[in-house]
């Protein structure tokens, strides 16, 4: 089998006395959507910051296309084709939507006109075409999520790290964004997503990893993982899996 796009090998991250990520490993195959779920505080976002380069792992290796990128700065990883969005959206508030996206587009398009053209094409893809000249600070929550996605896409990544793009959206907004993510995958972008909206995880992801207290406790297709007793206990507490099973048996 060929080398996966991203391989995280026994990565740990320690902040003082806190072991936020504890020897976690995962593999992202090219062309798919891989999910990363887990209870609050499990270390999902920390793992993302390690993959995108904003923090360096304490131990372990991060391989992108077989190359160890653990020591590279975020901008160097972006140049290799790793883009991320932020869980708390980080727009360039004083700039227009077009200029926001153009910053991302400049990575592959040094000329201003090319970058602006690329920005318009990307805006079309994420449904921001009619907001191009609006100031980013004037966007709604879902608009900002689209912008976050658009800027990352404008860097023409091979691997897109989505950190809870659906968080804070209402169900109808989620239904708007999910097809965009699906389209991205069809256009050849590999996606690793942290997500709490399980309906989206179930419908989008091929493989799901479950992180709890910094450790990877399960992996597999979404349907199997959500039935895993270890996963149920991580979310609902010790003994929850047994109680659920007993209740199911009682109701027959």
């Amino acid at each position: 089998m060929s080398e996966p796009l991203l391989r995280v090998e026994a990565v740990s991250k320690r902040f003082g006395g806190l072991l936020a990520v504890d020897a976690a490993s995962l593999v992202v195959e090219a062309g798919g959507i891989t999910g990363l779920i887990g209870p609050n505080g499990a270390g999902k976002t920390t793992l993302f910051t390690l993959v995108s380069g904003f923090e360096k792992p304490t131990t372990g290796r991060i391989l992108f296309k077989g190359r160890d990128v653990g020591a590279l700065a975020p901008h160097e990883r972006a140049a290799l084709g790793v883009a991320r969005t932020f869980q708390i959206v980080q727009p360039f508030a004083g700039l227009s939507v077009r200029e926001n996206i153009a910053v991302g587009a400049h990575l592959r398009h040094p000329r201003r006109d090319d970058a602006l053209g690329k920005a318009e094409a990307v805006a079309e893809r994420v449904g921001l075409a009619d907001r191009l000249d609006a100031p980013a600070s004037g966007l709604t929550v879902v608009g900002r999520k689209r912008l976050e996605l658009a800027r990352a896409l404008a860097t023409e990544p091979e691997l897109l790290l989505l950190d809870e793009v659906l968080a804070g959206l209402n169900p109808s907004e989620v239904r708007d964004i999910v097809p965009i993510i699906r389209d991205l995958r069809h256009s050849g972008v590999t996606i690793l997503m942290v997500e709490h909206v399980m309906q989206a995880v179930m419908s989008l992801c091929d493989t799901v990893y479950v992180l709890a207290q910094g450790r990877m406790i399960a992996e597999g297709p979404p349907a199997a993982v959500t039935r895993d007793p270890a996963v149920i206990e991580a979310y609902l507490g010790h003994g929850a899996a047994a109680r659920l099973a007993a209740r199911e048996a009682a109701h027959g």
């Binding site: 904003f54 972006a78 140049a79 980080q90 910053v103 990575l107 860097t155």
Partner: peptide
């Protein structure tokens, strides 16, 4: 930070 993430 956003600039860094976009390759700046």
């Amino acid at each position: 930070d956003a600039a860094k993430a976009l390759g700046v």
